[in-house]
Design a protein around this nucleic acid. Sequence first.
DNA 1: CAGTTATTTTAGTTTCATCTAAAGTATTGC
DNA 2: GCAATACTTTAGATGAAACTAAAATAACTG
Lengths: 118, 118
Amino acid sequence: MASQAAVLAAIASPRRREILRLVWKQELTAGAIHQAMPDVTFGAVSLQLRSLVETGLVHTRAKSRNRFYQARPEALGLLGKMLEQMWDDKLWALKLEAELEETRRGPKPHRRSRIKKG
Amino acid sequence: MASQAAVLAAIASPRRREILRLVWKQELTAGAIHQAMPDVTFGAVSLQLRSLVETGLVHTRAKSRNRFYQARPEALGLLGKMLEQMWDDKLWALKLEAELEETRRGPKPHRRSRIKKG
DNA sequence: CAGTTATTTTAGTTTCATCTAAAGTATTGC
DNA sequence: GCAATACTTTAGATGAAACTAAAATAACTG
């Protein structure tokens, strides 16, 4: 098993989180995973899969020409719960929307002065 | 509050984790934090502090010429618990040692063949 | 106000992760 | 064995994050 630090680094990447989400509840082939992320090449997906496997977050199994991948939620423990929330917590989605809305709505208050006094 | 993704990114960095550890239980000035990390410049530390404040993981307070920083563990929730473990779990320290030892001990087994069959 | 201390900010550089394109490997079907 | 499919690996390009050195700011001190 890879270090905790490596696990943190792994799930810090949005791309890898996306892959984890895809294979969280089901086994998918590398090809299927790639089809779900058409903005990158197959090679890129393959590299991310490799890194996920190396950190122990994903399991791989070869079957004929295909390679099947599936997440190992038990390797993530509490972090897994956190990711699940990130994925399907409607509340969170709403919060994010509000946040974006806020940043869209006009320029940030001008950052002129420092904190005034001690 | 910053997004979950931002929090993950923040704690994925060893440097920022180190800072968090330092200010986890006590308030420290920027200078004190820098002294504890002599391998980087003051400027570098200041930048990381800024990013930690912006993600909401650290609180800052000005007092005369100094700026005091302290972690906001409540902003991390479960992740905070995880970091605490990472810092003071003896078992974990041992695991890490073993890991390092292993990588020190000679070249990795040559990566020649693929997985044999499906 | 000039000088010192504490810290931040800027501008430029280095380092590192990720990506692409292309070549390589394994398995199947004719 | 040859072509096709499914995937991985390599080598090089690109961009973002982190760092450095130096300049800027702010608060206190005499």
